[in-house]
Design a protein around this nucleic acid. Sequence first.
DNA 1: CGGTGTATGCTTACGCCGTAAACTATGTCA
DNA 2: TGACATAGTTTACGGCGTAAGCATACACCG
Lengths: 228, 228
Amino acid sequence: MARTRDALTHDRVLQAALTLADAEGLDALTMRRLGTALGVEAMSLYRHVPNKEALLDAMVDVIVHDWIDDEAALKADWRARIAAIMHRAHATLLARPWAVELVTIRPRAGDGRLRYAETITTALLEAGFTPQLAHHGLHIVDGTIMGFTAQQARRPTAAALGDSVQALYNGDLAGDYPGISVTIREHHDHAEEYSLMVDLVIDGLARLRDGHLPPRTGSGASYARSLV
Amino acid sequence: MARTRDALTHDRVLQAALTLADAEGLDALTMRRLGTALGVEAMSLYRHVPNKEALLDAMVDVIVHDWIDDEAALKADWRARIAAIMHRAHATLLARPWAVELVTIRPRAGDGRLRYAETITTALLEAGFTPQLAHHGLHIVDGTIMGFTAQQARRPTAAALGDSVQALYNGDLAGDYPGISVTIREHHDHAEEYSLMVDLVIDGLARLRDGHLPPRTGSGASYARSLV
DNA sequence: CGGTGTATGCTTACGCCGTAAACTATGTCA
DNA sequence: TGACATAGTTTACGGCGTAAGCATACACCG
């Protein structure tokens, strides 16, 4: 049945997978359902994708690549460049909350992820960071994107978040948790908060580059030891 | 068969789940295998746990609670207090890499997580942060823990990381990715890098409290728009 | 001491999942 | 025309989470 028309391709499978995940979440992305979405049996997909893992990795790569897909922004000053990537990543992930899980966990690096890392690294190197500090910087930027976004993407599901959080809003637990009972009602603009963090991180990087070491609190080794 | 001896309890199930995940990873944690580990059929577990999701949530709560389980450290100066929590969290998660996936994704907040949030929040409030800033601060700290740790926990699996990273080390891709080809060989001490980030974040928080706003790069709204 | 109610764990079964293996139908080119 | 490669199908297997109903053994009461 090698029809020429409507032939399946790796890319059609990949796009359909993204669409399905967008529409119904990651749990709905099964090989059978993906097949159905493409009008095809599940096993047919295996002609174009070695296994589901590889498909997920490819999805990650598409998403991460998108973060640096803005030529205009990438010509600016290093701060603006990195800010652009961070904001784009944030927006992408909030639009596709299911992707957070994939992006934060999957280790396999395809071209998209490498290019993303490359873009940040060269921005830092060109801005006068030492290779060592650029390396740290990449991890700092990457970690900030993942951590912040994971956390904010976690929130929207707050409808089904657990009674405790409801109770907190009602002030019912003010005795047990006085601090968060106060702060939980604070005005909360995700974008604004993220923006603050982005600028804080970029400013921190600049200060590091210029030799302003933050006051050290300790190496952490003692805390690690206290776990045993 | 309500034996008095060796009776199953919620806590025994929970502990066994943690042990199994520690020993063989999260994929190995199935209800059947967990039952076997406890010398019991899978369905017996459901007398003590409503479903697997709830078990995973309970595991998360144990882990997060552990982050603030250090009374000595929690009496110190606010910087040291937050640093202690962050380092403890990092150490815990690196020791239990499988937990990263759970902790970063699961939204349901039990007592452990609430108490963790409470501890950080009150530390900040006591240190003179406004409720608004304390709220941001909690998210900043939490995001940093998750993001950084997820990333570092991702690395160790680098053995099975993909040929591209191997190639990078060999310098084979220096043409395509000149920046990371240079920086990837940088000396890399996870603990030291994390320490740097912790201090950078805490210093950033202090500066925020004291009114030193970092130079703003933009609200991010434009990048969000550029996605459409 | 014997009977009974109830908590605890077991058995069976269902509908999902990812995917291995073998098969069939199609289009290509000699 | 006929052989071959390619694309999609069929069938099947072992594993998953868990619903439903059953069996057992203890705790308590008379």
